[in-house]
């Protein structure tokens, strides 16, 4: 299993500083683990492209088409004329369409979130319980002892309170 250097910080600003320094020193993907979302992390680690919006959009689109198809299709499959309305009555079916658009949009967003954030985690990943309370961790994968030493130095110079070596996937 791979070894990771992990530095604990008590402030988001110093964690960001360390992450930036690690990135500058050639570590390709330092991970910041924090109890709250950190503002301005995009400037340090680069903007993240999220696929969720595509999921939401196409999910909603699918839902809209499926909704109208459900209402119109089932009405045609077993014909019941009601109340002098046409079999395919547009205004009521638009309401079904609307609801299913939203339902499928929501479900697709969840799917996008699950896939995009690589959850649920089945393997052991780098984690220390302190980050769920008030500590900010910066961790980076180190293939060999030499890189581990360099990561250690960078974390320390950025003001890490504590530096650990943690086994696990990033």
């Amino acid at each position: 299993m791979a070894t990771n250097a992990l530095g604990l910080f008590n402030a988001p600003s110093s964690a960001l500083e360390a992450a930036g320094a690690l990135k500058g020193a050639g570590f390709d993907s330092p991970t910041v683990i924090s109890p709250i979302p950190i503002h301005g992390i995009d400037e340090v680690l680069g903007k993240k492209k999220s696929i969720i919006k595509r999921f939401t959009f196409f999910g909603a689109l699918f839902g809209g088409i499926a909704g109208f198809a459900l209402a119109a299709g089932t009405a045609v499959m077993y014909i019941h004329a009601t109340g002098g309305r046409p079999i395919i009555a547009i205004p009521p079916f638009l309401i079904i369409t609307y609801e299913l658009t939203i339902l499928c949009g929501i479900l697709a967003t969840v799917l996008g979130f699950i896939l995009g954030s690589r959850l649920p985690a089945f393997k052991n990943r780098v984690y220390v319980p302190e980050v769920a309370v008030d500590k900010f961790a910066v961790t980076v994968l180190c293939e060999d002892p030499e890189r581990l030493k360099r990561a250690h130095d960078i974390l320390q110079s950025s003001g890490a309170e504590e530096i650990r070596e943690v086994e696990g996937e990033q």
Binding site: H80, A81, T82, G83, G84, R85
Partner: peptide, 18 residues
């Protein structure tokens, strides 16, 4: 036995129809 019966449209399970 209305041809445009309000009761028919409202039944969610098509228990009443024309």
């Amino acid at each position: 036995h209305c041809d445009a019966a309000p009761c028919e449209t409202v039944c969610p399970v098509s228990a009443t129809y024309h």
